[in-house]
């Protein structure tokens, strides 16, 4: 079985996000990129499948130089192959363009399963996984928390999340694209030494295609949410805040 995992670089939303002078994008110099969290879970799920079956996992990393680091981490965690898909920063957020760009790279690999995160932090159009499935003429199901592949390798049974903690159990014909919500197990860590070793020894294939001309969604303005509905902020050090908080709770009969 051949599994491809698509890893995207997205803004780290834990860091401060600065809006650029054009008022429509993020200031590139101020951005820290991380691998999209859902994609990390997709990689973990692929490695879990690899531990159960005779599978090879190809990490497909999308972006500039930081995407190379993501490949090294993936290889250090257990991915067998590394494919770098170079794409300019400003096109990365548009999944319609990205899906069209990635499709030939994925097709030529002959994969049975293509896994990626069901969602990306900076996404504004449809999810990459669903769009890629259409480009590949593969079925697609997303929002998954478990994937099991039948021994014959032509079907997968998946768990899909629904609101209220419900799960739908579904069967999907392979090859398929699957959108991972979270892996069956917590993400594994790769040590710094293993990552540096992977950086030195891994063979990175590169894919460069021509960027498709896809008209995306036009952002007219990017803003931070208005502060009008902001919480009443408690001042002082931890001890002082604790004191104020207990007074508030007591006034409301909560302690």
């Amino acid at each position: 079985m051949k599994i491809a995992v698509i890893l995207r670089q997205v803004p780290d939303v834990v860091q401060e996000l600065v809006i650029a002078a054009d008022g429509r994008s993020l200031a590139k110099d101020e951005l820290t990129y991380i691998t999209n969290e859902g994609d990390e879970h997709a990689l973990e799920e692929a490695l879990i499948l690899k531990s159960r079956h005779a599978a090879t996992v190809t990490a497909v990393s999308v972006g500039g130089d930081e995407a190379r680091d993501a490949l090294a981490t993936a290889v250090a965690k257990g991915a067998d192959e590394a494919l770098l898909v170079s794409i300019p920063l400003e096109r990365r957020g548009d999944n319609h363009g990205l899906a069209a760009y990635l499709a030939p790279a994925i097709t030529s690999g002959g994969y049975d399963l293509v896994l990626t995160g069901v969602w990306a932090a900076d996404q504004l159009d449809a999810g990459l996984a669903g769009l890629l499935a259409v480009q590949l003429s593969f079925p697609y199901v997303g929002g998954l928390t478990a994937v099991a592949v039948e021994p014959a390798g032509n079907r997968a049974t998946v768990h899909k999340e629904f609101p209220g903690g419900r799960l739908g159990v579904m069967e999907v014909s392979l090859p398929a694209v699957l959108g991972i919500q979270s892996a069956e197990q917590p993400l594994r860590y790769a040590s710094v030494s293993k990552i540096s070793q992977a950086k030195r020894t891994m063979q990175v294939k590169e894919f460069r295609g021509s960027l498709p001309n896809v008209e995306g969604v036009h952002v007219s303005r990017l803003t931070k949410p208005e502060a009008s509905a902001k919480a009443d902020m408690l001042q002082g050090d931890a001890s002082r805040v604790a004191e104020t908080l207990v007074r508030i709770l007591r006034e409301r009969g909560l302690v």
Binding site: H96, A99, V118, W119, Q123, L124, D125, A126, G127, A129, G130, L131, L132, A133, V134, Q135, Y140, V141, G142, G143, K160, E161, F162, P163, G179, Q181, E215, G216, V217
Partner: peptide
Amino acid sequence: NTSVGMDLAGTLSLGLGAPVVSG
């Protein structure tokens, strides 16, 4: 913008030639 709608958006977008705005 749920696990149901997200499954449909890509196919409908490309099948109908329509842009998608999420979130």
